[in-house]
Design a protein around this nucleic acid. Sequence first.
DNA 1: TAGGCCATCTGGTCCT
DNA 2: AGGACCAGATGGCCTA
Length: 157
Amino acid sequence: RSAHPEILWMDSTLINFVSDMNLMEFPPKYALAPKQQVDETPTRPSNQTRLNDSSWSRDLEDGVSTKHLMMGSPRYYGTHGHTRSKRRRIITVVQRQAANVRERKRMFSLNEAFDELRRKVPTFAYEKRLSRIETLRLAIVYISFMTDLEEGIFDSS
DNA sequence: TAGGCCATCTGGTCCT
DNA sequence: AGGACCAGATGGCCTA
């Protein structure tokens, strides 16, 4: 496809690279930790409920719901879960809706970045669209590959 | 039909 | 105080 010999070489190397990628097992260190499952199945609160008048409330140490404890980040709720105050922000329906809009915009820009990354990593044209996790993993290997290339690892002469 | 992927909502925490 | 970030939960869509 390319006119220049070095680009031809690059093309075949990339094709091999992409082929290898499809067969590749990713090292366990990149594997995602299994999701921590919650025993209870929390019901989604109604959008219509207004939770409190003030924007913040403070739960008593022994009065906080188990859902809040389980939903919290492990690094803040340690093995005992009593080291941090349970200050909780309560927001109105309007504020929640605004937060939802912001979150959608944030995820949209995140997906734009993923699309841009998809266009940068090599794939075969007929391949189906890469998922987000596939894109990230391919990008990691591609960067490593290009780094090795730059350092002359693949020099055969 | 099960599993993967994704969009969306939500609440907790961080940060300005 | 409130926006940004993050992760869990849920439901819809698609494919093998």
